[in-house]
Every structure is written in C-alpha cells, then in structure tokens.
C-alpha cells in the first residue's frame, strides 16, 4: 500500500472528524444546558434556594426538612415533568419528521395529540373523571388515533405524504369533536378541560411521572438504536431495502416508539404544542443538516420545555400554562416553515 492516503481518503477523514467533534460538543453542551435548567427550575420561586441546596436535596446528600419539603415535595415533580416530557416530545417529533420525510409531520399535527385531547376531555366532561384516569384515557386516545391513522394510510405499506394528510384530517375531526364535547360541559368542567388542553408541566402526578420516566429509560436508548434503520429509510423505501433494511418492520418499530413517547408525554402534561415540531429542526441546525440525531433532539426538547416553563411560571405577571408559552414561540416558526418549505417546493 502507498504511504500517503489518496486525497479522497484524507478529505473524508477531515470531514468526518469535524462532524463527530461537532456532534459530541453539541450533545454535551445540550446535556449541560438541560442539567442547568433542571436545577434552576427548582431554585427560583417565592422561596429562593441555592444550586447546592437543590442538588443536595435531590440527591439526598443532606437532610434539611424545610428545603426538602420545597424541593422534593413541590418543585421536583414539576422539574422532572418538564425534563421527561421535553425529552419525550423532542425524540418523538424528530422520529416522525424523519420517518415521514416532512418537517410538518410532528405528532401534534398529525392527530395524535388531538386523539389524546378528545379522550381526556371526554373523560373530564362526560365521565366526570380526574387525575390519573384522565392520563390513562389520554394515553389510550393517542394510541388509538395513531393506530387509526396507520390503518387508514396503509396501502401496500405506509408512505409519508398520505400519512400526513390523513393525520391532519384525523386531527381536524377530533378537534371538532372536542369542541362539541365542550359545548355540552358544565362551566367548571369546561374550565378544567380547557386547562388540560392548554398543557402544563405542573399538572403531572407522581405515578404518571414514574411511568413516563420508566418508558424513557427503555425507549430513548431504543430510539437511538433505531436511528440506524431510520437513516436508511430516509433515502426512500427502495434504497432502504436495497441497503438491507427490513422497511415495514423498522417503520412500525419507529412509529410505535414515537407514538408511545408522545402519548405518555401528552398524558402527563397535556398537549403542549410545538415542542415536538421545533426540537428536531433546532437539533439539525446545531449539528449540521440531515444529521437527525434523536438524542440531541430529545435534549433540545427538554431545554425548550424547561425554559418555557420558567418563562410561563416566573417571568409572566401571572403564572400561565406552559403550552401558552410554547405556542407563542412555535406559531411564528410554523408560519416561517410553511412559507419557506413551499418556496423550496418541498412542502409535499
């Protein structure tokens, strides 16, 4: 062999090294940001705490009853909910977008959140339920909506465009039904339902959180593993199969992972909009185009949600549901996305 590598090999080495360094730096930076926001969320409030007090209490390093009451009892559930829901939404959103090859294909647009919403509102208004039962219903509604769309979109396999259009149709249908159910509600129930629909990380119960955390521990590594077939599927079914992917099996696995993640996130915090839509594209901006890291996208989701919650609860004159803040940030992005994708002709 020659001593000097051919120019192509050297350029490739440089390019690949630059990319992996960038990926590592971005991922670590995002993880640090998430950890910092997680701690800050528990520091601020009417009873201010130092970072050390928070960390010591969460990790059970020190016992200080009054600090422990505030941190473990009051603030940790909200912070943990922001963290886990953010991770789940970010990962789920980017899986959907890459799988369906469309930046608009986030689970909150294709009817999954609407399915959860309809089941939850139905539970609140018609069955007079509350708490954990509502979360269970939301979970069931999301999974049902996803299954319904999958079945409707199936024709010799599922393609992106048809799935999105059917998803939007399903979303509109469910939103209509939500409106109808709300008109039948008593005022107090309607208030409760509207609050649930706005989405807030503060409404998580202990059990819901535990379920979501356990699911994340299993599904996040699974999603990172499934990144491999996802990268092939992105090239279209023919190429993916020619490369050796079992396309329908991989797609079903990825969809199931994405659906369970978003369903659990919605059941914990309600349909918090736009986080799933923007986490993936932001991660891609940071990592370089078409890199599609699921883990970085999940971390971006957590950063977004923790930040939105800080803004909603502490920077606003009156505390707001988290979904109001994410909506205010996400809506302009959506408009921009619609305008630019159509200009590039990539909207379909």
């Amino acid at each position: 062999m020659t001593v000097l590598a051919p120019p192509a090999a050297r350029t490739l080495t440089v390019t690949r090294r630059r990319r992996s360094v960038r990926a590592a730096v971005v991922t670590v930076a995002l993880a640090v940001a998430v950890a910092a926001l997680f701690v800050v969320t528990m520091m601020v409030g009417s009873f201010r705490l130092s970072a050390w007090e928070v960390i010591a209490s969460v990790l059970h390093l020190e016992d200080n009853p009054s600090v422990d009451f505030v941190v473990r009892g009051l603030r940790l559930p909200t912070a943990a909910s922001g963290l886990t829901v953010g991770l789940a939404l970010g990962a789920s959103g980017t899986i959907f977008q890459q799988l369906l090859r469309n930046p608009l294909a986030s689970p909150d647009f294709v009817g999954i959140s609407s399915g959860a919403g309809l089941a939850a509102v139905g539970g609140i208004v018609l069955l007079n339920l509350g708490g954990l039962a509502i979360s269970g219903l939301a979970l069931g509604g999301a999974i049902l909506a996803a299954t319904l769309m999958y079945v409707l979109a199936w024709r010799d396999g599922v393609t992106g465009y048809r799935f999105i259009l059917i998803g939007i149709g399903v979303a509109v249908f469910f939103d209509g039904l939500i409106g109808y159910v709300l008109t039948r509600a008593q005022l107090s129930q309607a208030r409760q339902a509207m609050h649930w629909l706005a989405g807030s990380v503060g409404q998580a119960s202990d059990t819901e959180l535990k379920v979501l955390t356990a699911a994340l521990i299993v599904l996040l590594p699974l999603a990172v593993l499934l990144q491999r077939p996802l990268r092939a599927l992105e090239l279209g079914d023919d190429t993916a199969r020619a490369l050796g992917t079992r396309t329908e099996l991989s797609r079903a696995g990825l969809l199931a992972t994405g659906v369970v993640l978003v369903a659990l996130a919605v059941s914990v915090a309600g349909p918090i909009v736009f986080v799933a839509l923007i986490a993936g594209p932001i991660a891609n901006r940071l990592l370089g185009p078409a890199t599609g890291g699921i883990l970085p996208a999940a971390l971006v989701g957590a950063v977004l949600l923790l930040t939105a919650d800080l803004v909603a609860v502490h920077l606003m004159p009156t505390p707001l549901p988290t979904g109001v803040v994410t909506g205010a940030v996400g809506a302009p992005y959506l408009l921009w996305l619609l305008a630019t994708t159509n200009r590039q002709g990539a909207g379909g």
Partner: peptide, 13 residues
C-alpha cells in the same frame, strides 16, 4: 441497486 428516483434527505452532504 440504484432506484430510478432516489430520495436525499434535505440538506444532506
């Protein structure tokens, strides 16, 4: 196999 119209993810290098 190289399909007739292969799809490239947006922005891929």
């Amino acid at each position: 196999l190289l399909p007739q119209t292969p799809i490239a993810p947006d922005g891929i290098t």
